[in-house]
Simulated scan of single mutants.
Amino acid sequence: MLRGINPLLSPDLLHALRAMGHGDDIVIADANFPAQSNGRRVLRLDGITATAALEAVLQVMPLDTFVPDPVLTMQVVGNPSDIPPVVAEFQKIVDDVADNPVKIASLERHAFYERARGAFLVVQTGETRLYGNILLKKGVIGS
């Protein structure tokens, strides 16, 4: 056990977050996301919501400040401007926890899958709410 570290951050997840470099992407995915076919590295957090995982990750990982959209979600098929409740909750967490709060942008479903294929890590959660997928670009910690 460690003090000050969210217990949802498993040893494997902490290792992966520390191994990531500036500009690397991490996907926090829902239970329906095709993680094994769209992720080079996949870690599972079964039984954990994507929102809880996002909050834990943002407590220790900086967001990139060198790109316009360091946080992306998947657009609703057939209604790209719709904001599902889980995405609204993602935005609240980014606003409250991120070191660099930003407005979340979105990608069309297949474009999101393509970005996920290049991500450093996909964390598959037990999230059952549809569209509970979010991609974060890691930033730097200044001196």
Rank of each mutant, 00 (worst) to 15 (best):
L2E: 15
L2Y: 07
G4A: 14
I5L: 13
N6I: 00
N6T: 02
N6C: 09
P7V: 11
S10L: 03
D12V: 07
L13A: 08
A16H: 15
L17V: 14
L17E: 14
L17D: 15
L17R: 15
R18G: 07
R18L: 06
A19F: 10
M20N: 15
M20D: 13
G21T: 12
H22T: 10
H22Q: 09
D24R: 02
D25G: 03
I28R: 00
D30A: 08
D30C: 07
A31V: 07
N32R: 10
F33Q: 01
F33E: 01
F33K: 04
P34A: 02
A35D: 00
Q36A: 13
S37F: 08
S37D: 12
N38C: 07
N38G: 03
V42A: 01
L43A: 11
L45W: 01
D46A: 13
T51Y: 11
T51M: 09
A52M: 15
A53S: 02
E55T: 09
A56C: 02
V57A: 01
L58H: 02
L58Q: 01
Q59W: 02
V60F: 13
L63G: 10
D64G: 05
D64Q: 06
F66R: 10
V67P: 12
V67S: 13
V67Q: 14
V67N: 12
P70N: 09
P70M: 04
V71W: 05
V71L: 15
M74H: 08
M74Q: 13
V77H: 10
P80A: 04
S81I: 09
P85L: 06
P85R: 12
V86T: 14
V87N: 13
A88T: 08
A88L: 09
E89Y: 08
Q91L: 05
Q91V: 05
K92R: 10
K92M: 14
K92W: 09
D95W: 04
D95K: 12
D95V: 11
D96W: 09
V97W: 00
N100W: 13
P101Q: 08
E108M: 11
E108Q: 12
H110D: 15
H110N: 15
A111P: 06
E114V: 02
E114F: 05
A116T: 03
A116N: 00
G118F: 08
F120H: 14
F120I: 09
L121C: 08
V122M: 00
V122E: 00
Q124R: 12
E127W: 02
E127N: 03
R129A: 13
L130S: 14
L130Y: 11
Y131P: 03
Y131W: 06
G132T: 04
I134Y: 07
L135W: 00
L136G: 01
L136N: 00
L136S: 00
K138S: 03
G139T: 04
V140M: 12
V140R: 11
I141E: 14
G142V: 14
G142P: 15
G142M: 15
S143E: 15
